[in-house]
Write a protein that binds this DNA or RNA. Structure first.
Lengths: 147, 147
DNA sequence: CCATATAGTCAAGTAGCTTGACCAACCGGC
DNA sequence: GCCGGTTGGTCAAGCTACTTGACTATATGG
């Protein structure tokens, strides 16, 4: 593989990731929620019975201060609330509210819509293969959304 | 395709793009250049006979002010220089210096190295297919590096 | 030759992170 | 028990890479 192709692959990956992220965010907004892309990844973690700020920080690959600020935001917007942690008085359990769950569903729907556009181009099998290969290449490190 | 898979695909894309970008940047640094990921994409545009700030802004998908700041950086670091534009006294042609060309080569080498790790996992054919499909999905919009 | 558009820069503001300092609560060894 | 070290969380300040807005100099079409 030539050097220039490697850079083109990187550009294509970034363009694809950016495109998808943008479409999903637009879909979420169109469904009546305000947010930024990082919310979706935070929600997928919170949806499993809640999480501490530290859990969330690890999941998102940021400092706990940054995670705490994100929690401030989603609490202020009514998507989550901080509760006492059962069994650790230092920690606080961040759980989704009703509206937070609704936003999570909206995000998943928007993601499905965005990917559907890809399925139209590549076909379902190839999109699935794409995901499988990407997962093999970059097995769950923490996520760095960045858009 | 289930909704949750669509989000997983997005996460995988972001993780892969972030991983690749990080590896390339590390490779560039290891070769003795200082920079950030955006440089690589700027250089690929500048390498073709230079470009104006406005060209670069369009290529990178940012405002011309942001592009101008990036040019300030790479000029300060000795990778490029501003020259008079032949035929338009308003415009200035940004061209790579010798060192800028060397850094461009280093970036391409680092990218090739990073992708080589993927070839080890997936095989050359699949990596090529990956790139082909990504290019079909997200045909050159402007690039938003973001890391 | 003038009205409008374009290239570029300067200045200020913003988002989303970081590092550093700190406090309260947990925990293992003695 | 309790005490040193660790961990969960927040507050405060700073930084980076962008943005918007205002402006100047040059180009261009009627």
């Amino acid at each position: 593989m030539q050097n220039s192709e490697a850079l083109a692959l990187t550009a294509a990956l970034l363009a694809a990731a950016g495109d998808l992220t943008r479409r999903i965010n637009e879909g979420v907004v169109a469904r009546g929620f305000e947010g930024r892309p990082a919310y979706g990844f935070a929600f997928t973690r919170l949806a499993r019975g809640g999480a501490t700020v530290t859990d969330l920080a690890a999941h998102l690959g940021v400092t706990k201060q940054a995670a705490s600020q994100l929690v401030d935001e989603i609490v202020r917007k009514g998507y989550a609330e901080r509760r006492a942690h059962p069994g650790d008085a230092r920690a606080r359990l961040v759980v989704l509210t009703e509206r937070g769950v609704a936003c999570t569903r909206a995000t998943e729907e928007a993601a499905a819509d965005a990917v559907a556009a890809w399925v139209d181009i590549l076909g379902e099998g190839e999109v699935r293969a794409l995901r499988e290969r990407l997962t093999r290449i970059a097995p769950y490190g923490p996520i760095r959304p960045a858009w």
